[in-house]
């Protein structure tokens, strides 16, 4: 499920601007786009909750109060209990950590591999570029969940394999984006100048190309975080997700779905957690894109 696609992200080519004024831009952007600000807010709160889960959670995520199994939300258990009598609030909090980890691992893994491939292909050009891009074409030919499912089935169900599968599905987006950026940057004066000064290719890439190609990649990463959480939930639903009793949100929805008519809170609360977190990342991504697009800024 491409939350953002190469086409939509390459249609602008923002160049890195001077640092000065960026802080004011953020304030202005927040005022202009309250949704983006809301997204940033959600993401920040979510990250804080994830980090502070052990302090905030009233119980361990695996402790079973079997006698209170499926009890509705109460004062003692504000979000109710699940089918094994585990505190849903605590599981949601610990689950936030897992989702954050899934998102980050996928973004870092897919982002690093993809960007390395993309920049190299764009910078070196020629046959290497051609081969690399054909390989990304092959990956783009699959709908993401179907490819991820096939990979997860092959590797066997586990949280690690889920992350690997999603990263494999997402790296080509970064490759295309960074290649497109590199192709433009390569012809620009400051890169030409650096080359004339005798800097090595690696140095040029690290010092000049990468920093300037970063903006759309960051936007993509934000969308990708949300996408990763959603694909992980989808894989859990099929049965290729985190192992019990791991409080992964997707697993919680998927395992709780039999209770939707009888104890609605069991699947609904984790579903809402997913909704909130993914919306947050998507809003943030939208906002960042506006912010980093010089043409949007002028208005």
């Amino acid at each position: 499920m491409p939350a953002s696609t190469p086409a939509s992200a390459t249609d602008r080519l923002p160049l890195k601007r001077a640092r000065r004024g960026r802080g004011r831009d953020i304030v202005r952007a927040a005022r202009r786009s309250p949704l983006a600000a809301a997204g940033a807010g959600v993401v920040i709160v979510y990250a804080l909750l994830a980090v502070a889960a052990p302090i905030l959670a009233p119980h361990a995520p695996v402790t079973q109060f079997l006698e209170h199994r499926l009890d509705p939300p109460s004062r003692a258990f504000p979000l109710g209990l699940d089918q094994l009598g585990r505190d849903i609030l605590s599981r949601i909090l610990y689950g936030a950590r897992l989702s954050l980890i899934i998102g980050l691992v996928v973004v870092v893994l897919g982002g690093v591999v993809g960007t390395a491939v993309g920049i190299t292909a764009g910078f070196v050009g020629g046959r290497l570029d051609n081969v690399m891009m054909r390989i990304t074409d092959v990956f783009f030919a699959f709908p993401s969940l179907i490819l991820a499912m096939a990979i997860a089935a092959a590797l066997g169900p586990s949280l690690t394999n889920t992350m690997v599968a999603i990263a494999i599905v997402t790296w080509p987006v970064y490759a295309r984006l960074s290649r497109a950026q590199t192709l433009v940057l390569r012809r620009l004066e400051f890169v030409e100048a650096a080359r004339a000064m005798g800097l090595t290719d690696v140095r040029i890439i690290v010092r000049h190309v990468l920093p300037n190609a970063l903006s759309p990649l960051i936007v993509q990463a934000s969308f990708n975080m949300g996408e990763a959480i959603l694909i992980a939930a989808g894989l859990s639903f099929i049965g290729f997700g985190a192992q019990p009793p791991t409080p992964e949100w997707g697993v919680m929805v998927s395992e709780g779905r039999d209770y939707i008519t009888t104890q609605w809170w069991v699947p609904t609360i984790p579903a809402l957690a997913i909704l909130l977190a993914v919306t947050g990342f998507n809003l943030l991504g939208d906002g960042l894109r506006d912010l980093m697009d010089p043409r949007m800024r002028r208005r």
């Binding site: 695996v62 019990p244 395992e255």
Partner: peptide, 18 residues
């Protein structure tokens, strides 16, 4: 998936684990 009796295998497993 679901175990016979109407719960999921994963839930029975988590109970035994605990």
């Amino acid at each position: 998936g679901p175990a016979p009796g109407g719960v999921r295998w994963a839930d029975v497993a988590a109970k035994i684990q605990s």
